[in-house]
Design a binder for these strands. Sequence first.
DNA 1: CAGTGGTCTAGACCACTAT
DNA 2: TAGTGGTCTAGACCACTGA
Lengths: 256, 256
Amino acid sequence: MSEQGSFNLDQAEIDKNSVIPIYYQLAKFFEKQIRQRNLLPGEALPTETEIASHFGISRMTVRRAISELVAAGMVYAQKGKGTFVAMPKLDNIVFDLNNFYEEIKQKGMKPNSKLLEAKIVRSDELLSKRLGIPLNTRCLFFRIVITANDEPLAYERKYTVYAKQKPILESELKDPSLSSLAAAHSDSLPVSSKKVLMVSRTTEEESLILGVSRGTPVFLMVQTLYDLERKPIAWGLSIFRGDRYKLTSYDGWYDE
Amino acid sequence: MSEQGSFNLDQAEIDKNSVIPIYYQLAKFFEKQIRQRNLLPGEALPTETEIASHFGISRMTVRRAISELVAAGMVYAQKGKGTFVAMPKLDNIVFDLNNFYEEIKQKGMKPNSKLLEAKIVRSDELLSKRLGIPLNTRCLFFRIVITANDEPLAYERKYTVYAKQKPILESELKDPSLSSLAAAHSDSLPVSSKKVLMVSRTTEEESLILGVSRGTPVFLMVQTLYDLERKPIAWGLSIFRGDRYKLTSYDGWYDE
DNA sequence: CAGTGGTCTAGACCACTAT
DNA sequence: TAGTGGTCTAGACCACTGA
C-alpha cells in the first residue's frame, strides 16, 4: 500500500546506465516530487529498503540520494521511524549579497566599476589602529564607484598594507574584491574576514559621488580582513544607495 | 613520506569502539588540523586509501569523513589528483539575523517583546492588494515592540488573514514569528517566504515608538508569506533602529 | 602507465521505534 | 518483535590526472 497523495515511485525515470549518477537522479526525483507537492510536509518517504528494491539498486545508493535532501533541509530522518518531508523554515533571515555584479545583470542592467583614485598613502592614527600597524606604514588606497547603467550605485574605499612593490594592475579593478587585493599586495594571505552591515546617511563627499542629496539613507558595509596571525591586513568601507539597493531573501521550496 | 608541515596522521586519536562514529571523529580531526594551521590552504590531505589503511578502516568511511569537510567548504577534491585544503571564501556576504533574541542575549542584554495592539481589521485597498484578498476581508493585525534592556530596538507591524476564530494567545507574543501566526490563524499553511531588507527613515509614529528623532536611518524589513497556491497569506513590516542594530558576518576558519 | 577520487554493491551489525 | 534509519566493510569498476 503506497498511496501517499499522488506520489508514486513508478513515476521516477532512473537510468542505471546514464553518466548521471543514480543517487543524483534519485535525489532530483524526490526533490521534484516535493516541489510539485506530490509529497507534502509531514508525509513519509518510502523506506530505504523499499526504494532500493523497487529500483534494484543498493541501499547505500538510496541513502546517498536521501542525504542530499537532508542537507538541503527538505526532508528529515528519524531513527526507527522513517524519513519525512520537512516544513520549510520560513523565519531564517539570511541575506546574501554575493554576486553584486550578477544581481545587477539579472535586472537587465549593465554593471561597471570606475576607479576614482589609487595611491600609496602613509597610515595615519585611525588607519594604523584599524590595520594594527605602525604609524606611517605604506598602504594602498583605492576609491571605486560601482555603476549600473551609468548610474552610481555604490561607493567603496579600501585600504590594504602595501608590502610588495607590485604595480596596481588594471585588471584588479574589474572585480574589486578586497581579499584579492590584499592577497596580491600585502605581505600575508587573508584567511578570515569580518563584515558589518549598518545603516547610515551620506556625507557631503558621498552625496556628490553617488549623486544623491546629503543625508540620504544608505547601507554601510565595513569589511576587515585578517591574516593567519589574526592581524588585520585590509579594511574597506562600502556605501550602497538605499534608494536603489535592497537585499532579498527567499525561503521555501515552491518557486512557482 | 608524509611531511606536510607539522601535520601527521599519528596525531589522530580514533577510537573504533566509541559510540561516536568513526567518520565523525576523523572529520573533526582534519577540521582541527586545518584550524590549527597544521594543514594550510593548498596543501594535500593524505589519499583516501592511505588514510583508510593507516587507521584500518574502510575507504567508504574515510570518504564519508572527507565529504563532511567538503560540505563545510574546508577542502575540495579533484578527481585523479587528490584532496586539498581550500582557501576560505572571504567575499561571501551572507548576513544572518536568525536569532534576534539570541543575538541580544549574547550581548548580555535582556530581550523582551511588548504587544502594543492586536485587533481584527477589515482589509483596505492596500492590504487587500498585498494579501491578494477581497476588500473588507477579516485580518489579524499586530503591533509589537522589541526591546533590549527596556530600550526599544525594533517595531513590527504584521497582518495575516483571520480565517479561524481562534483567540490570540498570550504565548504567541513571546516569539512573534510571522509564520507561526499565519499557520495558527489563516486558512492555509505558509510554505514560502520572501523577505526584503531596505534602508529607510522613521516616520513620525515610528520615531515616537522607538524613541528616536524623526528621520533616523533604520533597517526596514518586509516579509511576505505564501501558501501552497502561491497566494500571500501574511505580511509584515519590521523597523530596526539603525543606531542600535547591525548585521555581522564572519568568514574563514581561524577563530582565535 | 599507476594512482587518484567518484560511484556502486551486497552484505553486516547496531540503536531506535512501535506494536 | 519486526521494521526503521545509522554506520561500516571489503570489495568492484570507472574517469580522470600526471609522468
